[in-house]
Design a binder for these strands. Structure first.
Lengths: 232, 232
DNA sequence: TCAAAAGTGTTATGAGTACACCCATGC
DNA sequence: GCATGGGTGTACTCATAACACTTTTGA
Protein backbone atom coordinates (compact mmCIF):
# COMPACT_ATOMS: atom_id res chain seq x y z
CA UNK A 1 0.00 0.00 0.00
CA UNK A 2 2.98 2.27 0.52
CA UNK A 3 3.29 3.09 -3.18
CA UNK A 4 0.05 5.01 -3.12
CA UNK A 5 1.59 7.41 -0.65
CA UNK A 6 4.59 8.27 -2.75
CA UNK A 7 3.25 11.50 -4.15
CA UNK A 8 1.35 14.56 -2.96
CA UNK A 9 -2.39 14.15 -2.88
CA UNK A 10 -5.30 16.42 -3.40
CA UNK A 11 -7.76 16.95 -0.58
CA UNK A 12 -11.33 15.92 -1.27
CA UNK A 13 -14.55 17.53 -0.11
CA UNK A 14 -18.23 16.94 -0.60
CA UNK A 15 -20.59 19.89 -0.99
CA UNK A 16 -24.36 19.82 -1.04
CA UNK A 17 -26.64 21.94 -3.17
CA UNK A 18 -29.82 21.62 -1.17
CA UNK A 19 -33.12 23.01 -2.37
CA UNK A 20 -36.17 23.67 -0.27
CA UNK A 21 -39.44 25.42 -0.83
CA UNK A 22 -40.79 28.03 1.53
CA UNK A 23 -43.16 30.95 1.04
CA UNK A 24 -43.57 29.82 -2.56
CA UNK A 25 -39.92 30.53 -3.23
CA UNK A 26 -37.19 28.09 -4.13
CA UNK A 27 -34.38 28.42 -1.64
CA UNK A 28 -30.89 27.08 -1.14
CA UNK A 29 -29.31 26.05 2.10
CA UNK A 30 -26.16 28.02 2.97
CA UNK A 31 -23.72 28.02 5.85
CA UNK A 32 -21.56 30.78 7.12
CA UNK A 33 -17.84 30.09 7.23
CA UNK A 34 -17.00 30.90 10.80
CA UNK A 35 -13.39 29.85 11.31
CA UNK A 36 -11.00 32.73 10.98
CA UNK A 37 -8.03 30.60 9.98
CA UNK A 38 -9.87 29.21 7.00
CA UNK A 39 -10.42 30.83 3.61
CA UNK A 40 -13.41 33.13 3.07
CA UNK A 41 -14.14 33.72 6.76
CA UNK A 42 -17.61 35.12 7.27
CA UNK A 43 -18.69 34.30 3.74
CA UNK A 44 -21.68 32.13 2.84
CA UNK A 45 -20.96 28.78 1.31
CA UNK A 46 -22.57 25.46 0.45
CA UNK A 47 -22.63 23.10 3.40
CA UNK A 48 -19.93 20.48 3.05
CA UNK A 49 -16.66 19.26 4.40
CA UNK A 50 -13.64 17.07 3.91
CA UNK A 51 -14.35 13.43 3.31
CA UNK A 52 -13.96 10.59 5.71
CA UNK A 53 -11.62 7.91 4.40
CA UNK A 54 -13.85 5.08 5.48
CA UNK A 55 -17.09 6.36 4.03
CA UNK A 56 -18.91 6.46 0.76
CA UNK A 57 -19.13 9.90 -0.80
CA UNK A 58 -22.95 9.84 -0.73
CA UNK A 59 -23.00 8.83 2.90
CA UNK A 60 -20.44 11.44 3.82
CA UNK A 61 -22.48 14.12 2.08
CA UNK A 62 -25.67 13.12 3.93
CA UNK A 63 -23.99 12.85 7.30
CA UNK A 64 -21.97 16.03 7.04
CA UNK A 65 -25.12 17.86 6.11
CA UNK A 66 -27.08 16.38 8.97
CA UNK A 67 -24.36 17.15 11.47
CA UNK A 68 -23.71 20.69 10.36
CA UNK A 69 -27.22 21.86 9.57
CA UNK A 70 -29.63 19.32 11.01
CA UNK A 71 -31.20 18.82 7.59
CA UNK A 72 -32.54 15.47 6.33
CA UNK A 73 -32.83 15.06 2.60
CA UNK A 74 -35.83 13.46 0.97
CA UNK A 75 -33.81 12.80 -2.17
CA UNK A 76 -30.22 13.08 -3.28
CA UNK A 77 -27.97 12.38 -6.24
CA UNK A 78 -24.42 13.13 -7.26
CA UNK A 79 -24.13 16.35 -9.21
CA UNK A 80 -20.63 16.97 -10.53
CA UNK A 81 -17.01 16.92 -9.46
CA UNK A 82 -15.24 20.25 -9.51
CA UNK A 83 -11.50 20.04 -9.65
CA UNK A 84 -9.98 23.25 -11.03
CA UNK A 85 -6.53 23.48 -9.49
CA UNK A 86 -7.12 27.02 -8.22
CA UNK A 87 -10.61 26.67 -6.84
CA UNK A 88 -9.36 26.63 -3.24
CA UNK A 89 -6.63 28.95 -1.99
CA UNK A 90 -5.35 26.25 0.37
CA UNK A 91 -4.17 24.11 -2.52
CA UNK A 92 -5.68 21.37 -4.58
CA UNK A 93 -9.07 20.53 -3.22
CA UNK A 94 -11.42 18.48 -5.32
CA UNK A 95 -15.10 18.76 -4.53
CA UNK A 96 -17.77 16.26 -5.42
CA UNK A 97 -21.11 18.01 -5.19
CA UNK A 98 -24.50 16.51 -4.51
CA UNK A 99 -27.97 17.72 -5.33
CA UNK A 100 -30.52 17.32 -2.56
CA UNK A 101 -34.13 18.14 -1.80
CA UNK A 102 -35.78 18.92 1.50
CA UNK A 103 -39.42 18.87 2.61
CA UNK A 104 -40.97 22.04 3.97
CA UNK A 105 -41.14 20.81 7.55
CA UNK A 106 -37.35 20.49 7.56
CA UNK A 107 -36.93 23.85 5.94
CA UNK A 108 -38.85 25.49 8.74
CA UNK A 109 -37.54 23.26 11.53
CA UNK A 110 -33.93 24.15 11.61
CA UNK A 111 -34.32 27.63 10.19
CA UNK A 112 -34.63 28.72 13.78
CA UNK A 113 -32.41 26.09 15.33
CA UNK A 114 -29.13 26.93 13.65
CA UNK A 115 -30.25 30.40 12.71
CA UNK A 116 -26.96 32.28 13.02
CA UNK A 117 -24.74 30.03 10.97
CA UNK A 118 -27.30 28.47 8.61
CA UNK A 119 -29.75 30.12 6.26
CA UNK A 120 -32.15 29.47 3.42
CA UNK A 121 -31.72 31.96 0.60
CA UNK A 122 -33.91 32.42 -2.48
CA UNK A 123 -32.12 31.14 -5.55
CA UNK A 124 -32.56 34.39 -7.39
CA UNK A 125 -31.19 36.47 -4.56
CA UNK A 126 -27.99 34.78 -3.52
CA UNK A 127 -25.10 36.51 -1.79
CA UNK A 128 -21.57 36.08 -3.10
CA UNK A 129 -20.46 32.62 -2.18
CA UNK A 130 -17.09 31.25 -1.17
CA UNK A 131 -14.88 29.34 -3.60
CA UNK A 132 -16.62 28.40 -6.85
CA UNK A 133 -19.87 27.72 -5.07
CA UNK A 134 -21.84 30.15 -7.19
CA UNK A 135 -20.92 28.08 -10.19
CA UNK A 136 -21.86 24.89 -8.37
CA UNK A 137 -25.25 26.31 -7.49
CA UNK A 138 -25.74 27.22 -11.14
CA UNK A 139 -25.06 23.67 -12.22
CA UNK A 140 -27.37 22.35 -9.50
CA UNK A 141 -30.20 24.62 -10.47
CA UNK A 142 -29.82 23.74 -14.09
CA UNK A 143 -29.90 20.06 -13.27
CA UNK A 144 -32.94 20.41 -11.04
CA UNK A 145 -34.85 22.21 -13.79
CA UNK A 146 -33.87 19.74 -16.46
CA UNK A 147 -34.62 16.79 -14.25
CA UNK A 148 -37.99 18.14 -13.33
CA UNK A 149 -39.04 17.97 -16.95
CA UNK A 150 -38.54 14.22 -17.10
CA UNK A 151 -38.94 12.87 -13.63
CA UNK A 152 -41.40 13.73 -10.89
CA UNK A 153 -38.51 14.63 -8.59
CA UNK A 154 -40.40 17.66 -7.38
CA UNK A 155 -42.38 15.45 -5.04
CA UNK A 156 -39.29 15.42 -2.85
CA UNK A 157 -39.90 19.07 -2.08
CA UNK A 158 -43.43 18.58 -0.78
CA UNK A 159 -44.89 17.39 2.49
CA UNK A 160 -46.38 13.86 2.62
CA UNK A 161 -49.77 15.11 1.49
CA UNK A 162 -50.43 18.07 -0.72
CA UNK A 163 -52.93 19.47 -3.17
CA UNK A 164 -52.61 19.61 -6.93
CA UNK A 165 -52.32 23.36 -6.66
CA UNK A 166 -49.35 22.96 -4.32
CA UNK A 167 -47.69 20.74 -6.85
CA UNK A 168 -48.38 23.06 -9.70
CA UNK A 169 -47.01 26.02 -7.80
CA UNK A 170 -43.86 24.08 -7.13
CA UNK A 171 -43.35 23.38 -10.81
CA UNK A 172 -44.06 26.99 -11.64
CA UNK A 173 -41.62 28.29 -9.07
CA UNK A 174 -38.83 26.01 -10.18
CA UNK A 175 -39.54 26.24 -13.87
CA UNK A 176 -39.89 29.99 -13.65
CA UNK A 177 -43.03 30.20 -15.74
CA UNK A 178 -46.78 29.67 -15.27
CA UNK A 179 -48.48 26.45 -16.28
CA UNK A 180 -51.97 25.76 -17.52
CA UNK A 181 -54.03 24.21 -14.77
CA UNK A 182 -55.94 21.77 -16.93
CA UNK A 183 -52.93 20.59 -18.90
CA UNK A 184 -50.90 20.23 -15.76
CA UNK A 185 -53.52 18.09 -14.11
CA UNK A 186 -54.01 15.92 -17.14
CA UNK A 187 -50.29 15.31 -17.28
CA UNK A 188 -50.00 14.53 -13.60
CA UNK A 189 -52.88 12.12 -13.66
CA UNK A 190 -51.49 10.31 -16.66
CA UNK A 191 -48.36 9.48 -14.66
CA UNK A 192 -50.44 7.50 -12.15
CA UNK A 193 -48.13 8.50 -9.38
CA UNK A 194 -50.62 10.44 -7.28
CA UNK A 195 -53.19 8.86 -5.01
CA UNK A 196 -56.12 10.86 -3.65
CA UNK A 197 -56.34 10.48 0.13
CA UNK A 198 -60.05 11.21 0.31
CA UNK A 199 -59.26 13.94 2.80
CA UNK A 200 -59.77 17.54 1.85
CA UNK A 201 -57.83 20.52 2.99
CA UNK A 202 -59.90 23.59 3.79
CA UNK A 203 -58.10 26.83 3.91
CA UNK A 204 -59.67 30.26 3.84
CA UNK A 205 -63.23 30.63 2.71
CA UNK A 206 -62.88 28.70 -0.51
CA UNK A 207 -63.72 25.39 -1.92
CA UNK A 208 -61.62 22.73 -0.11
CA UNK A 209 -58.97 20.93 -2.14
CA UNK A 210 -58.36 17.23 -2.35
CA UNK A 211 -55.17 16.08 -0.67
CA UNK A 212 -52.95 13.64 -2.51
CA UNK A 213 -50.01 11.54 -1.56
CA UNK A 214 -47.70 9.77 -3.96
CA UNK A 215 -47.35 6.10 -4.61
CA UNK A 216 -43.82 5.22 -3.47
CA UNK A 217 -43.52 2.22 -5.78
CA UNK A 218 -44.68 4.04 -8.84
CA UNK A 219 -42.49 6.99 -7.93
CA UNK A 220 -39.36 4.82 -7.82
CA UNK A 221 -40.37 3.28 -11.11
CA UNK A 222 -40.62 6.68 -12.73
CA UNK A 223 -37.27 7.74 -11.33
CA UNK A 224 -35.66 4.69 -12.83
CA UNK A 225 -37.22 4.80 -16.23
CA UNK A 226 -36.70 8.52 -16.56
CA UNK A 227 -33.61 10.07 -17.97
CA UNK A 228 -30.71 9.20 -15.80
CA UNK A 229 -28.28 11.91 -15.17
CA UNK A 230 -26.53 9.91 -12.60
CA UNK A 231 -26.84 6.20 -12.29
CA UNK A 232 -24.89 3.57 -10.49
CA UNK B 1 -1.73 25.73 3.84
CA UNK B 2 -0.44 23.31 6.43
CA UNK B 3 -3.86 22.68 7.91
CA UNK B 4 -4.95 20.87 4.78
CA UNK B 5 -2.28 18.28 5.34
CA UNK B 6 -3.33 17.38 8.83
CA UNK B 7 -5.29 14.25 7.94
CA UNK B 8 -4.94 11.21 5.69
CA UNK B 9 -6.04 11.80 2.13
CA UNK B 10 -7.60 9.69 -0.53
CA UNK B 11 -5.77 9.21 -3.79
CA UNK B 12 -7.55 10.45 -6.88
CA UNK B 13 -7.59 8.97 -10.35
CA UNK B 14 -9.25 9.76 -13.66
CA UNK B 15 -10.54 6.96 -15.85
CA UNK B 16 -11.83 7.23 -19.38
CA UNK B 17 -14.71 5.31 -20.91
CA UNK B 18 -13.85 5.72 -24.57
CA UNK B 19 -16.13 4.55 -27.33
CA UNK B 20 -15.20 3.98 -30.92
CA UNK B 21 -16.91 2.41 -33.88
CA UNK B 22 -15.25 -0.21 -36.05
CA UNK B 23 -16.66 -2.98 -38.22
CA UNK B 24 -20.13 -1.70 -37.38
CA UNK B 25 -19.60 -2.56 -33.74
CA UNK B 26 -19.41 -0.24 -30.77
CA UNK B 27 -16.16 -0.82 -28.95
CA UNK B 28 -14.45 0.32 -25.80
CA UNK B 29 -10.82 1.13 -25.33
CA UNK B 30 -9.05 -1.02 -22.73
CA UNK B 31 -5.54 -1.24 -21.38
CA UNK B 32 -3.78 -4.16 -19.87
CA UNK B 33 -2.43 -3.68 -16.37
CA UNK B 34 1.20 -4.66 -16.78
CA UNK B 35 2.93 -3.81 -13.51
CA UNK B 36 3.24 -6.79 -11.25
CA UNK B 37 3.42 -4.77 -8.05
CA UNK B 38 0.04 -3.18 -8.73
CA UNK B 39 -3.41 -4.66 -8.19
CA UNK B 40 -5.02 -6.77 -10.92
CA UNK B 41 -1.81 -7.46 -12.85
CA UNK B 42 -2.55 -8.70 -16.36
CA UNK B 43 -6.20 -7.69 -16.17
CA UNK B 44 -7.91 -5.37 -18.60
CA UNK B 45 -8.95 -1.97 -17.29
CA UNK B 46 -10.11 1.44 -18.41
CA UNK B 47 -7.24 3.71 -19.34
CA UNK B 48 -6.54 6.19 -16.58
CA UNK B 49 -4.13 7.22 -13.91
CA UNK B 50 -3.47 9.24 -10.82
CA UNK B 51 -4.10 12.92 -11.15
CA UNK B 52 -1.56 15.65 -11.47
CA UNK B 53 -1.89 18.24 -8.73
CA UNK B 54 -1.48 21.16 -11.09
CA UNK B 55 -3.96 20.12 -13.71
CA UNK B 56 -7.64 20.22 -14.36
CA UNK B 57 -9.38 16.85 -14.18
CA UNK B 58 -10.53 17.09 -17.80
CA UNK B 59 -7.08 17.98 -19.01
CA UNK B 60 -5.51 15.20 -16.99
CA UNK B 61 -7.96 12.71 -18.44
CA UNK B 62 -7.22 13.79 -22.02
CA UNK B 63 -3.47 13.85 -21.53
CA UNK B 64 -3.22 10.58 -19.66
CA UNK B 65 -5.22 8.95 -22.40
CA UNK B 66 -3.08 10.40 -25.14
CA UNK B 67 0.13 9.40 -23.43
CA UNK B 68 -0.90 5.88 -22.58
CA UNK B 69 -2.86 4.92 -25.67
CA UNK B 70 -2.17 7.55 -28.31
CA UNK B 71 -5.87 8.25 -28.67
CA UNK B 72 -7.33 11.71 -29.38
CA UNK B 73 -10.93 12.26 -28.41
CA UNK B 74 -13.38 14.07 -30.64
CA UNK B 75 -15.62 14.76 -27.67
CA UNK B 76 -15.51 14.32 -23.91
CA UNK B 77 -17.53 15.02 -20.80
CA UNK B 78 -17.36 14.14 -17.15
CA UNK B 79 -19.28 10.99 -16.35
CA UNK B 80 -19.41 10.23 -12.63
CA UNK B 81 -17.21 10.05 -9.58
CA UNK B 82 -16.83 6.64 -8.00
CA UNK B 83 -15.75 6.65 -4.41
CA UNK B 84 -16.69 3.43 -2.65
CA UNK B 85 -14.13 2.95 0.08
CA UNK B 86 -13.31 -0.58 -1.01
CA UNK B 87 -13.12 -0.13 -4.74
CA UNK B 88 -9.32 -0.26 -4.76
CA UNK B 89 -7.33 -2.76 -2.66
CA UNK B 90 -4.55 -0.21 -2.16
CA UNK B 91 -6.79 1.96 -0.01
CA UNK B 92 -9.08 4.85 -0.65
CA UNK B 93 -8.88 5.81 -4.27
CA UNK B 94 -11.53 8.06 -5.73
CA UNK B 95 -12.01 7.95 -9.46
CA UNK B 96 -13.60 10.60 -11.61
CA UNK B 97 -14.58 9.03 -14.87
CA UNK B 98 -14.98 10.65 -18.26
CA UNK B 99 -16.95 9.67 -21.30
CA UNK B 100 -15.14 10.09 -24.60
CA UNK B 101 -15.67 9.42 -28.29
CA UNK B 102 -13.13 8.62 -30.97
CA UNK B 103 -13.29 8.81 -34.77
CA UNK B 104 -12.68 5.66 -36.81
CA UNK B 105 -9.29 6.76 -38.12
CA UNK B 106 -8.02 6.88 -34.54
CA UNK B 107 -9.60 3.58 -33.72
CA UNK B 108 -7.67 1.93 -36.51
CA UNK B 109 -4.48 3.96 -36.11
CA UNK B 110 -3.26 2.90 -32.76
CA UNK B 111 -4.92 -0.50 -32.80
CA UNK B 112 -1.69 -1.71 -34.33
CA UNK B 113 0.64 0.75 -32.65
CA UNK B 114 0.10 -0.20 -29.03
CA UNK B 115 -1.32 -3.58 -29.91
CA UNK B 116 -0.06 -5.63 -26.99
CA UNK B 117 -1.16 -3.43 -24.13
CA UNK B 118 -4.13 -1.63 -25.67
CA UNK B 119 -7.25 -3.05 -27.28
CA UNK B 120 -10.70 -2.17 -28.57
CA UNK B 121 -13.34 -4.57 -27.33
CA UNK B 122 -16.99 -4.80 -28.38
CA UNK B 123 -19.23 -3.50 -25.62
CA UNK B 124 -21.27 -6.67 -25.56
CA UNK B 125 -18.27 -8.91 -25.28
CA UNK B 126 -16.13 -7.43 -22.54
CA UNK B 127 -13.64 -9.36 -20.46
CA UNK B 128 -13.70 -9.07 -16.69
CA UNK B 129 -12.27 -5.70 -15.81
CA UNK B 130 -10.12 -4.56 -12.93
CA UNK B 131 -11.59 -2.67 -9.96
CA UNK B 132 -15.19 -1.51 -10.48
CA UNK B 133 -14.54 -0.73 -14.11
CA UNK B 134 -17.31 -2.98 -15.36
CA UNK B 135 -19.74 -0.85 -13.42
CA UNK B 136 -18.17 2.32 -14.79
CA UNK B 137 -18.53 1.04 -18.34
CA UNK B 138 -22.19 0.30 -17.62
CA UNK B 139 -22.78 3.86 -16.50
CA UNK B 140 -20.92 5.19 -19.52
CA UNK B 141 -22.88 3.10 -21.96
CA UNK B 142 -26.13 4.10 -20.37
CA UNK B 143 -25.19 7.74 -20.57
CA UNK B 144 -24.11 7.46 -24.18
CA UNK B 145 -27.41 5.88 -25.14
CA UNK B 146 -29.48 8.40 -23.23
CA UNK B 147 -27.48 11.29 -24.57
CA UNK B 148 -27.80 10.09 -28.10
CA UNK B 149 -31.55 10.45 -27.87
CA UNK B 150 -31.31 14.17 -27.21
CA UNK B 151 -28.11 15.42 -28.67
CA UNK B 152 -26.37 14.61 -31.95
CA UNK B 153 -23.31 13.43 -30.03
CA UNK B 154 -22.97 10.48 -32.33
CA UNK B 155 -21.28 12.69 -34.88
CA UNK B 156 -18.20 12.47 -32.69
CA UNK B 157 -17.88 8.83 -33.66
CA UNK B 158 -17.78 9.44 -37.38
CA UNK B 159 -15.10 10.58 -39.81
CA UNK B 160 -15.25 14.17 -41.11
CA UNK B 161 -17.51 13.17 -43.97
CA UNK B 162 -19.97 10.33 -43.95
CA UNK B 163 -23.18 9.17 -45.54
CA UNK B 164 -26.63 9.17 -44.01
CA UNK B 165 -26.52 5.40 -43.97
CA UNK B 166 -23.31 5.54 -41.93
CA UNK B 167 -25.02 7.79 -39.45
CA UNK B 168 -28.09 5.62 -39.25
CA UNK B 169 -26.01 2.52 -38.71
CA UNK B 170 -24.23 4.26 -35.89
CA UNK B 171 -27.50 5.07 -34.18
CA UNK B 172 -28.72 1.55 -34.70
CA UNK B 173 -25.56 0.01 -33.30
CA UNK B 174 -25.54 2.19 -30.21
CA UNK B 175 -29.26 2.14 -29.66
CA UNK B 176 -29.40 -1.57 -30.21
CA UNK B 177 -32.44 -1.53 -32.49
CA UNK B 178 -33.20 -0.80 -36.14
CA UNK B 179 -34.54 2.54 -37.29
CA UNK B 180 -36.81 3.48 -40.14
CA UNK B 181 -34.77 5.02 -42.94
CA UNK B 182 -37.31 7.65 -43.93
CA UNK B 183 -38.12 8.74 -40.41
CA UNK B 184 -34.47 8.85 -39.52
CA UNK B 185 -33.61 11.05 -42.46
CA UNK B 186 -36.49 13.38 -41.86
CA UNK B 187 -35.39 13.79 -38.27
CA UNK B 188 -31.78 14.39 -39.16
CA UNK B 189 -32.63 16.95 -41.79
CA UNK B 190 -34.89 18.83 -39.44
CA UNK B 191 -31.94 19.39 -37.11
CA UNK B 192 -30.14 21.36 -39.82
CA UNK B 193 -26.82 20.13 -38.60
CA UNK B 194 -25.78 18.23 -41.71
CA UNK B 195 -24.40 19.84 -44.84
CA UNK B 196 -24.18 17.93 -48.12
CA UNK B 197 -20.68 18.17 -49.57
CA UNK B 198 -21.77 17.62 -53.16
CA UNK B 199 -19.32 14.76 -53.29
CA UNK B 200 -20.60 11.22 -53.60
CA UNK B 201 -19.05 8.08 -52.26
CA UNK B 202 -19.14 5.12 -54.58
CA UNK B 203 -18.63 1.78 -53.01
CA UNK B 204 -19.33 -1.54 -54.59
CA UNK B 205 -21.64 -1.67 -57.57
CA UNK B 206 -24.43 0.30 -56.03
CA UNK B 207 -25.86 3.71 -56.26
CA UNK B 208 -23.35 6.21 -54.83
CA UNK B 209 -24.30 7.98 -51.62
CA UNK B 210 -24.06 11.67 -50.89
CA UNK B 211 -21.37 12.56 -48.38
CA UNK B 212 -22.25 14.96 -45.61
CA UNK B 213 -20.25 16.86 -43.06
CA UNK B 214 -21.66 18.59 -40.05
CA UNK B 215 -21.92 22.27 -39.35
CA UNK B 216 -19.66 22.89 -36.37
CA UNK B 217 -21.54 25.99 -35.21
CA UNK B 218 -24.92 24.37 -35.36
CA UNK B 219 -23.53 21.27 -33.69
CA UNK B 220 -22.28 23.25 -30.71
CA UNK B 221 -25.63 25.00 -30.52
CA UNK B 222 -27.44 21.69 -30.35
CA UNK B 223 -25.09 20.39 -27.68
CA UNK B 224 -25.80 23.43 -25.58
CA UNK B 225 -29.53 23.57 -25.97
CA UNK B 226 -29.90 19.85 -25.54
CA UNK B 227 -30.38 18.22 -22.23
CA UNK B 228 -27.34 18.80 -20.17
CA UNK B 229 -26.12 15.92 -18.18
CA UNK B 230 -23.00 17.70 -17.31
CA UNK B 231 -22.49 21.38 -17.62
CA UNK B 232 -19.94 23.77 -16.29
C1' DT C 1 -30.61 -7.20 -66.60
C1' DC C 2 -29.69 -7.92 -61.99
C1' DA C 3 -28.10 -7.28 -57.36
C1' DA C 4 -27.48 -3.97 -53.85
C1' DA C 5 -27.70 0.15 -51.52
C1' DA C 6 -29.65 5.12 -52.06
C1' DG C 7 -33.31 7.81 -51.92
C1' DT C 8 -38.27 9.54 -51.33
C1' DG C 9 -44.11 10.79 -49.28
C1' DT C 10 -48.36 9.85 -46.98
C1' DT C 11 -51.27 8.57 -43.32
C1' DA C 12 -52.51 7.61 -38.44
C1' DT C 13 -51.82 8.32 -33.74
C1' DG C 14 -50.70 10.58 -29.46
C1' DA C 15 -48.72 14.42 -26.85
C1' DG C 16 -48.65 19.05 -26.01
C1' DT C 17 -50.90 23.51 -26.02
C1' DA C 18 -54.32 27.02 -25.93
C1' DC C 19 -58.44 28.43 -24.04
C1' DA C 20 -63.26 29.73 -20.41
C1' DC C 21 -66.50 28.48 -17.38
C1' DC C 22 -68.99 26.27 -13.23
C1' DC C 23 -68.33 24.60 -8.25
C1' DA C 24 -67.92 24.65 -3.23
C1' DT C 25 -66.96 27.17 0.64
C1' DG C 26 -66.75 30.91 4.53
C1' DC C 27 -67.73 35.24 5.45
C1' DG D 1 -74.45 36.87 -2.60
C1' DC D 2 -69.81 37.43 -3.37
C1' DA D 3 -65.03 36.66 -3.33
C1' DT D 4 -61.73 33.07 -3.72
C1' DG D 5 -59.39 29.18 -5.07
C1' DG D 6 -60.89 24.18 -6.81
C1' DG D 7 -62.08 21.69 -10.55
C1' DT D 8 -63.32 20.25 -15.53
C1' DG D 9 -63.39 19.35 -21.68
C1' DT D 10 -62.42 20.39 -26.47
C1' DA D 11 -60.06 21.64 -30.64
C1' DC D 12 -55.59 22.47 -32.95
C1' DT D 13 -50.91 21.57 -33.98
C1' DC D 14 -46.92 19.04 -34.36
C1' DA D 15 -43.82 15.18 -33.68
C1' DT D 16 -43.50 10.36 -34.04
C1' DA D 17 -44.30 5.83 -36.17
C1' DA D 18 -45.73 2.71 -39.67
C1' DC D 19 -45.31 1.47 -44.24
C1' DA D 20 -43.20 0.20 -50.10
C1' DC D 21 -41.51 1.50 -54.13
C1' DT D 22 -38.24 3.83 -57.57
C1' DT D 23 -33.39 5.19 -58.69
C1' DT D 24 -28.59 4.63 -59.65
C1' DT D 25 -24.72 2.18 -60.18
C1' DG D 26 -21.12 -1.70 -61.52
C1' DA D 27 -20.70 -6.07 -62.89
Amino acid sequence: MSHTYEYPRAAHTVDAVVFGLSDQVLKILLMRRAKLDQPYPGAWALPGGFIDLEQDLEETARQTLKKKTGVDLSWMEQLYTFGQPDRDPRGRVISTSFLGLVRPSDVRAHATEHASEVTWRPVDDLPDLAFDHTKIVGVGLHRLRTKLRWQPVGLGLLPPTFTLSDLQQLYEVIGGHPLDKRNFRRKVHSLNVLVPTGVKRRQGQHRPAELYRYDETRYQQLLEQGLDFELV
